[in-house]
Amino acid sequence: MEGERKGLWRTLVFPLSVIVLYVVLFAMMPSRTISALQASGQILIQIALPLCVAFIIMFALNLFIKPANVSRFLGKGAGVKGVIISGLAGIIATGPIYAWYALLKELRDKGASEFHIANFLCNRAVKPFLLPVMIAYFGWAFTLVLNILLVVGAIVTALVVNMLSTLAPRR
């Protein structure tokens, strides 16, 4: 219960700080602060529809894919299968990264290679349910190219990390 309260406080401290900043600025420069509020309103309108689509995709992913189930196979695959599984697990992973560190640490202790761990961590940048928001901001071409390159970049990062780890094996 205390942990949940701490988590809630951590989540709210940033937006509350921004609201306090607005109040302070309003006292000093009311017209510019109102302009800032209007600009924020426009951004909210801009992202409202993509966020609704994001929710629908989030629902579909939650209905059909269970991240904990994928994690069961993480580190078990070799070759192309291993690359796909660790990458896919990173893409669908939701929630705080700290919890995933615990799982990944356990998997590494059981022999999962550093390639899979690094591939998982870097593929977290690809978020299917947020694609509508990215498309709304940057367009189809950018979204497509960036996400493909992010997956490729994750593999390159993982390969280099794995290569360096074999040069200097962990103690």
Binding site: V18, Y22, A39, S40, G41, I43, I47, A54, M58, N62
Partner: peptide, 24 residues
């Protein structure tokens, strides 16, 4: 999905408000 979505909203709202300040 609702839980994940709601959990994302407070920080997103803070970022949107901060972006408004940034723009002005």
């Amino acid at each position: 999905s609702l839980r994940q979505f709601v959990a994302m909203l407070p920080v997103l709202l803070g970022v949107v408000l901060l972006t408004g300040l940034f723009k002005v």
